[in-house]
Design a protein around this nucleic acid. Structure first.
Length: 678
DNA sequence: GCTGACTGCCC
DNA sequence: ATTCTGC
DNA sequence: GCAGAATGGGCAGTCAGC
């Protein structure tokens, strides 16, 4: 292998990055760079975290004639990783990757849960090193817990660039994209390159120095903290440095972790059960032995443990923390976690359902308007009501527990003016016009997470809070109270402003209410079980949402994209157009859901012969097929050439009876959009 | 200072 | 958000 | 029935590059 000129320059550059930005290379010569795999290859040991030797960035001599010395340690992006050292051995990232691989291969839920429990125990069993919180989060594709506002700000593009760079001088971002189109999944692409283990600089010298879970975590946290000029390239560099130290299996997991898509078949429910199994099984067994000689005490205890874990998760939103809590303090510790004003709780969610479903299930049904806005949770401790301590000005959280207070001054003022006891309220923020009538969802988006010009936008788009539930009032937690009671308290707490509820016990009455809600410009109705408790994070059958039946459009397929994961071999997305005269089609959106695997395979086969051109994952297709596409609403679009887009598009069927000339026209779409806005 | 690409997060 | 799929 | 996976449109914010 001969490397020269610009490529050698880049290798040198990369090597510096590999060691960390605060390191300057001394004594590197081009002769050696030209032969990185030969005897004179560069040794990288002693340059990155090395818990055993604690050498950090000091020069080591090493195999090659390379010395390093710290230049600006305070700006070293890996500093946190080094600082994370502990005397106890840490779980190696490779070990995590290997177990993850086994998890992904395991189809049976029960066995998966057991494997996750084993992994958690290995990461932080009593007396061992403490990677438990980190591993728990990693399993779910997270670096930070849900309530944490920090983000990596690394997406697919940056990740691909970092991979390309780690893959060597002959690999560009375009190559990575090409492989992605083939492999259908970024982890497989990363694993396919073999960077760190064999080719990478770190492979030489006496034994590779291996990544630990803690080091990856620390590096990603540092990366997340970076912002401002040059941050994008520093993030790319930091990622490059990590990838360069990865074996294929590690690279796969790292790429997925960074993008938050682990694809392990392990979700929150599995982790929840695994936490209980790993750390509370003992406690449960004890319970069984000592007190209960009833039927199946083990089972009962296990349910109890799972319930305790679940409740702790609902109120803390931190899987890592809950895992540690379960291990260190057991059931009692978990149960000590309760609601706290100022700490967001997961929102209760709803499933689709009809009026008949609701009546059959609940008898009497609580019917509320379903507002088309953004879900919010409001926490407030009035100054006057604060016992001894200070009050807490109203804080507003999004459904994912981001703090959105600053963007929503109306909500703050509204609550401040009316509420006189500590509360946690649940509700929806909608955009309204000067008459107080609801505006389209897009208007809410213009306000919701705004940081700049909030006051100016406030004049343009008004907001209104519709509070519909109350989780805490005046010192009382209400999660376990029935909806009826919670709503009564809501009315007490927000006298003139709580969203109204109407009780109905027959489908006809519900339909009348639904028609009225739609007439007033709302999305539909919520049908709730009046006797149900508030179950945070649960998408159960106690809350049903009822929206109008979908409308459909017959649109022409004018393009497609290769799918990912399960759909790697197939088109995953179809670009749609509507007739715009003269055999021209104006695009109006894409469909990707609603297709069964079979329909997708058929369509892929059928359309392949009509592919006009391919660019990465993007495919242009000659207009040939007509699809019936369901949608919720037609909205104006800055993205598509028709000027419109479908909201919530889904595949309904293929219109084999229609030729492209018979598909719906832009004219018709414009008319429908106009009707919808009326 | 402007624009476009990207990211995260609403639905 | 919606939808399909495997358990 | 549930959890997980694979996907939709659009907005604000941020950063890079001109």
């Amino acid at each position: 292998m001969v490397v020269e000129g610009a490529v050698a320059e880049r290798l040198l550059d990369d090597f510096r990055l590999l060691l960390g930005a605060g390191v300057e290379l001394v004594g590197v010569d081009r002769e050696r760079l030209a032969d990185p795999v030969g005897e004179g290859g560069l040794g990288a040991h002693g340059t990155v975290d090395d818990p055993g030797r604690q050498k950090g960035l000091r020069p080591t001599g090493g195999v090659g004639a390379v010395g390093t010395r710290p230049v600006r340690p305070e700006t070293d992006p890996y500093r946190g990783a080094f600082a994370e050292r502990s005397r106890t051995p840490r779980m190696e990232f490779a070990a995590f990757a290997e177990r993850a691989e086994r998890l992904a291969a395991e189809p049976a839920d029960i066995e998966t849960t057991r494997l996750v429990a084993d992994l958690l125990a290995a990461a932080g069993g009593r007396g061992k090193s403490d990677d438990l919180a980190t591993v728990t989060r990693f399993l779910l594709g997270r670096v930070f817990p849900a309530h944490d506002t920090r983000t990596l700000d690394v997406g697919p593009a940056l990740c691909r660039e970092a991979i390309a760079r780690a893959a060597g001088p002959n690999v560009g971002a375009a190559d990575v994209e090409e492989r992605l189109a083939e492999a259908g999944e970024i982890g497989a692409v990363a694993a396919g390159f073999d960077f760190g283990g064999q080719r990478g600089l770190a492979a030489f010298g006496e034994g590779r120095d291996r990544l630990t879970v803690a080091a990856v975590d620390a590096a990603l946290r540092e990366l997340a903290a970076d912002a401002g000029d040059g941050s994008e390239s520093r993030k790319r560099d930091a990622l490059f440095g990590l990838f360069n130290r990865c074996e294929p299996a590690e690279a796969k997991l790292l790429a997925r972790l960074v993008l938050g898509e682990m694809r392990l078949g392990v979700g929150e429910g599995t982790v929840r059960d695994a936490i209980a199994e790993a750390f509370l099984a003992e406690a449960s067994a004890d319970d069984g032995k000592e007190g209960n000689d009833g039927d199946d005490p083990t089972l009962r205890a296990r349910d109890e443990a799972a319930a305790a874990v679940e409740r702790a998760l609902q109120v803390t939103n931190d899987y890592g923390r809950v895992a540690v809590l379960a291990r260190d303090e057991g059931l009692a510790g978990l149960r000590a976690e309760g609601l706290a004003v100022g700490r967001p709780v997961q929102a209760m969610l709803a499933q689709a359902g009809t009026a008949t479903d609701a009546v059959e299930a609940f008898g009497e049904v609580a019917v509320e308007t379903k507002f088309d806005g953004a879900r919010v949770q409001v926490h407030y401790v009035p100054e006057s009501a604060a016992e001894g301590g200070e009050g807490l000005g109203p804080r507003v959280y999004s459904r994912n527990m981001d703090d959105v207070t600053d963007a929503l001054p109306e909500v703050v003022e509204y609550v401040e003016a009316r509420v006189s006891v500590p509360v946690i309220l649940d509700g929806e923020v909608v955009a309204v016009d000067d008459d107080g009538d609801p505006l389209p969802f897009q208007e809410v988006l213009r306000r919701f997470r705004r940081k700049h010009d909030v006051d100016r936008m406030r004049e343009e788009v008004g907001l209104r809070l519709h509070a519909f539930d109350c989780l805490h009032a005046d010192g009382e937690d209400l999660l376990d109270e029935p909806l009826r009671a919670r709503h009564d308290l809501l009315v007490d707490v927000l006298p003139d402003a709580a969203a109204s509820v109407e009780f109905a016990d027959d489908p006809e009455a519900i339909e009348v209410a639904e028609a009225a809600a739609l007439d007033a410009g709302h999305e539909g109705v919520m049908l709730k079980n009046p006797d149900a408790a508030y179950t945070p994070g649960d998408r159960g059958r106690d809350w049903l949402k009822r929206k109008p039946d979908v409308e459909t459009l017959d649109a022409v397929v004018v393009g497609a994209e290769w799918g990912e994961g399960r759909r790697a071999e197939l088109f995953g997305t179809f670009l749609l157009g509507v007739g715009a005269g003269d055999d021209e089609f104006a695009t109006i959106g894409k469909v990707a859901t609603g297709l069964t695997d079979e329909a997708l395979a058929d369509l892929t086969e059928r359309l392949k012969p009509h592919v006009v051109s391919e660019d990465g994952t993007e495919i242009e297709i000659r207009p040939e097929a007509v699809l019936e596409v369901g949608y919720e609403e037609i909205q104006t679009s800055p993205t598509y050439s028709s000027g419109y887009a479908l909201r919530f598009p889904r595949f309904v069927g293929v219109r084999d009876d229609k030729s492209v000339g018979d598909a719906d026209s832009l004219e018709r779409v414009a008319r429908l959009a106009g009707d919808g806005a009326e």
